[in-house]
């Protein structure tokens, strides 16, 4: 079984509720410079006459062939066979950022302890039959948990 968190651009308004829910779920210390594991963006294209606004929410994509997994020299990253999420155990993380360089989406970041930190799909919640925090909160249903 494999889960994905999907994003529907047509529904997102970049209100940031998903980012806040992520902070609440993961006790993110923004005061100390930490960032949430999911973030929202507004992109304005200012080319006349094609001015337009794009609204996005972004986090780890939990790729099927996740390049961060083989990139890690310490074997911290792996797939949870039960959920398919790209999860991690950073006990042996050396903070080399190889995962971040390998990721095309810029998902892995460094936590305040100098070890890798990224979205784990709210793996434990999904295993317990609950939705990821960002999916549960999304006021406009732009995020969804789908089973593949």
């Amino acid at each position: 079984m494999s889960y994905k968190i999907t994003f529907d651009e047509t529904k997102c308004v970049a209100c940031g509720a998903c980012a806040i829910a992520c902070m609440d779920q993961n006790d993110i210390l923004v005061e100390e410079g930490q960032f949430p594991l999911r973030r929202t963006f507004t992109r304005e294209s200012r080319l006349h006459p094609e001015e337009k606004f794009g609204y996005y929410s972004h986090a780890c994509e939990h790729c099927d062939e996740a390049p961060c997994i083989p990139a890690c020299p310490s074997g911290c990253l792996f797939k949870d066979p039960e959920t398919g999420f790209t999860v991690f155990d950073t006990t042996n993380c050396i903070g080399c950022r190889s995962c971040a360089f390998a990721c095309p989406h810029g998902a892995p970041a460094m936590g305040l302890d100098g070890k890798m930190l990224k979205c784990d799909g709210c793996n434990q919640r999904v295993k317990a039959g609950m939705l990821p925090a960002c999916v549960a909160v999304c006021p406009f249903d732009a995020l969804a948990l789908v089973e593949e």
Partner: peptide, 20 residues
């Protein structure tokens, strides 16, 4: 932690940015 209450009148499990 907070989460919306599914089935609640109006909000039905959702919260806004501030409420989260």
């Amino acid at each position: 932690k907070v989460e919306g209450t599914p089935g609640y009148p109006g909000s039905n499990g959702k919260l806004c940015t501030k409420g989260a």
